[in-house]
Amino acid sequence: MEIKLIKNVLEVNERQSEENKKIFDAHGIFVCNIMSSPGSGKTTLLQKTIPVIKERSRVAVIEGDIYTTRDALRLKEFNIPVVQINTGGGCHLNAAMIAEAMKALPLKDLDAVIIENVGNLVCPAEFNIGEDEKILIYSITEGDDKPAKYPLSFTNAGAIVINKMDLAPYCQVNIDKLKLEINQHNNTAPLFMVSALKGSGLIPWTDWLLSKIENKSR
């Protein structure tokens, strides 16, 4: 027998993303989707951010990684729920993976879920997963010319964290040019200039995150 139909395959992710968001919303949970190239400092930033926001909110992390649990292990000391997703080759997290991970989270007892996406500056930006905000971490060691090369990651971001500022003296990177180029793709997202490793510049970032969390749980 034969069935004729016209169904948009890409809409499946979008629908699942909306489902996820509905569940997060019903629990008043603020969800952010952290994206960057590999090695820009997502996990390091989490290691510095979690102790601060943990003081005032109940937070869990979903760690996306192609193969390993290394990043999840780096968060173990904080005693918060951490769910690992291994995409087994997949270049980004999708909404179905998050739906699965949500089952392992104590949603009733959470105010925020931080999702570390797979390190990749292209694909994660194309797939919504049920988040309130996409947050782009950009390391200055990537140069001042990338916003135009990877526009979607910048355009979609609700906040942009410029990381590794401690390395500015050692890189040929023009921070003003970088800011200007970011501004051409996104002039609404707040920009936070930090060094996650040194722990500098983090207060405006954690304040922003906390205000988002508190607004949602209210």
């Binding site: 069935i3 139909l5 169904k7 395959v9 890409l10 499946v12 992710n13 995409t87 087994g88 080759g89 997949g90 270049c91 980004h92 999708n94 179905a96 694909c123 194309e126 797939f127």
Partner: peptide, 17 residues
């Protein structure tokens, strides 16, 4: 490597249909 995710979505869509 979008394709794995899209293949999963396709399978879900087929099951649904």
């Amino acid at each position: 490597m979008h394709e794995f995710a899209i293949a999963q979505d396709l399978i879900n869509l087929i099951k649904d249909s």
